[in-house]
Design a protein around this nucleic acid. Structure first.
Lengths: 364, 364
DNA sequence: AACGGTGCTGGAATCGTTTCCACCCTCGTC
DNA sequence: GACGAGGGTGGAAACGATTCCAGCACCGTT
């Protein structure tokens, strides 16, 4: 394959001039520039990015490590990240940590070895995330997205704050007459899991509803755990059975829906169901599912921008966006008996309660 | 950051020996190997993959170019590709062509410049895909997945043959009493789009149903086109209105569902709906959607294996898998009035008609 | 005429590995 | 005791770009 040496020879100039001509360096005569361009065209020259990266110490590749690519939330996040990165001239390598700490380390090592210019990570808060902390300290440009870990000061965090929306959801359920509200949480090891449970408990308290430990199911952000915990909830003695279930993410909500159907119950008549994380399909489910929507794509874009800031030497800031409640039919009332799925692909979003969108930035 | 020179110095050996010790070359004494390992550990040495790639001329990165990452089919394909690639020691950079030829070229150029070891491409059959053809001829390891283009001989194609399944679907509709079956096709520029339409027409013929040009809608594999074409079909005069719609991909099916609901019709009572491409959510829709399932993940894995074969100098073969019909409630009957969504996450697959799965290989 | 800028150019160093090649041992064999 | 084989080693040449630095030509100014 033709190298810059060949181009230079053909154009009758030195490698130095050829390189300058091709990279747009100002001090090249118009004649030389034209000759080099022509020679490059004729030879079908394509710069070797590997050699360039070695010399410039920049790969223009970003690494993105997500805990579970199967989860639509992270799929959408990844898509937005890829899009914004491309707009900024970067490619993205996606690593799947598969919810296993050692797999996270593996991905991290692989990306570091490839000398990606920066890393976007959604880590589980595992105490053993030593490699991640070391990486943060070592000065590698790093930004946390959605989740973060303790002990990594100075690393910007881009995330959605779901607390207001969870409170809005609980009030929504309460207003519709639900009193025995169960929750299926995510792993306590994730910042998002803890936040959602805390907000849920707080909201119950505000409404004067007593906390009921038996109505808390411990899930792991996967469909099967949602199914299992919901089945358990439904098998409780009649008087302590829940009249609403709040699943702390979309996959667990789907599992819950399966369990509810398997038990022969109807939603929302027999039991209400709501989820954290909205996805387009929710509007088309039977019934359309009430959910808390994160500004997923915006999170991805903001995270990439923050990372690019870091990489290019600008100060990077943490970003917190707000999630908001999207009330559909699965808790009763909104959208009526049928419907809630009119219009285009899940864009029907009737917003309930306050929790208007705002964006705050805090210096990192 | 510590380089291999530092490691060598600390271990008291030459760079050559240090390199051999770390890459597992056989002719290194045990003593030297141990010393190098220890030194590398102490310094926290991490090999510079860029320099290694420059020297070895291998990046261990694969490029994957898909026409639309928003499409769940390609999302799932990408996931499978990433998984299999990682198992084989490769990373993957995903490029989104966004259904635009110039964007495909852009992605191609970017990946070629990065010197990925090989390329997995799902191209639209654009006559202007000159760059792609040149790439194929230039000897860059290349494998087509799902779609392919003419004029690129010797490039293995990994895909699913949907013809038998389409025939099974049409028979299925026919048996349930549907006679005016409409289709919303993909772009004629895609091999898959043409194949599905051809199979559909053929199946109508076999059953003695007359071809009706007005019942063919021309879509582009996106939700909006499905909505638009369905709306048009539903606005036909009463006597020529379809009693079934077959959407040639999942997004168009969703658009069709929206249009049907907007028209106040019910599925399957008012009209039947079926889709090419099954996705987990279809089982949870209202009603559960009948669809043709491609072995998506297996396609991704097979494509990666074929590409790895090419890269590593082994002969690579084309692979054709079969799609199969998954009958649910949206055309009537199967699953009854309610349900079709029991069990775990879309695993309910009642298979209809023949079209059993088989795998054939044809030398490339 | 000497001088200092400015614009353009080319030689060669550099990035951090891997690997070719030459060399030195040591050992067993004839 | 000469010899070949073979394991282990280190020096230095790649890989293909970018970029430092020095030099050259040409200009206008003193």
């Amino acid at each position: 394959m033709a190298g810059i040496k060949d181009v230079a020879a053909r154009a009758g100039v030195s490698m130095a001039t050829a390189s300058r001509a091709l990279t747009g360096h100002p001090s090249v005569s118009d004649a030389a520039r034209a000759a080099v361009r022509a020679a490059a065209d004729e030879l079908g020259y394509r710069a070797n990015g590997v050699a360039r990266s070695l010399r410039t110490r920049r790969t223009r590749i970003l690494g993105l490590v997500v805990p579970d690519v199967l989860n639509p939330f992270f799929t959408e996040l990844a898509r937005a990240v890829e899009e914004e990165a491309r707009a900024l001239g970067y490619s993205v390598i996606i690593g799947n940590a598969d919810d296993r700490p050692e797999q996270l380390d593996h991905q991290l090592r692989s990306l570091l070895e490839r000398r990606t210019d920066g890393l976007l990570v959604a880590p589980a808060d595992d105490p053993s995330a030593e490699l991640l902390r070391r990486t943060a300290r070592s000065g590698t440009p790093l930004v946390f997205v959605d989740r973060w870990i303790a002990g990594a000061p100075g690393v910007p965090v881009v995330r959605a704050d779901g607390r207001a929306a969870v409170r809005a959801l609980v009030r929504h359920l309460h207003r519709l007459g639900r009193r025995r509200i169960a929750v299926i949480t995510g792993p306590a090891a994730t910042a998002t899991g803890r936040e959602r449970l805390d907000a849920f408990r707080g909201a119950l308290g505000e409404l004067g509803l007593p906390p009921r430990p038996e109505l808390i199911g411990h899930g792991d952000f996967r469909a099967e755990s949602g199914r299992r915990e919901t089945a358990r909830l439904l098998s409780l003695p009649r008087h302590s059975r829940p009249d609403a279930v709040f699943a702390a993410d979309n996959l667990m909500a789907l599992g819950a829906l399966d369990a509810i159907r398997a038990a022969g119950l109807r939603v929302p008549a027999g039991i209400a169901l709501a989820a954290f994380d909205d996805i387009p399909w929710f509007a088309h489910l039977d019934p359309p599912l009430t959910a808390i929507a994160q500004p997923t794509a915006e999170l991805g874009r903001a995270a990439v921008r923050a990372l690019a800031d870091r990489i290019e030497g600008r100060p990077a800031a943490s970003v917190t966006l707000d999630a908001r409640l999207v009330a559909r039919a699965s808790c009763g009332e909104p959208g009526g008996a049928r419907g809630g799925g009119t219009g285009r692909l899940g864009n029907v979003r009737r917003c309930d309660d306050g929790a208007e969108r705002r964006e705050r930035e805090s210096g990192s």
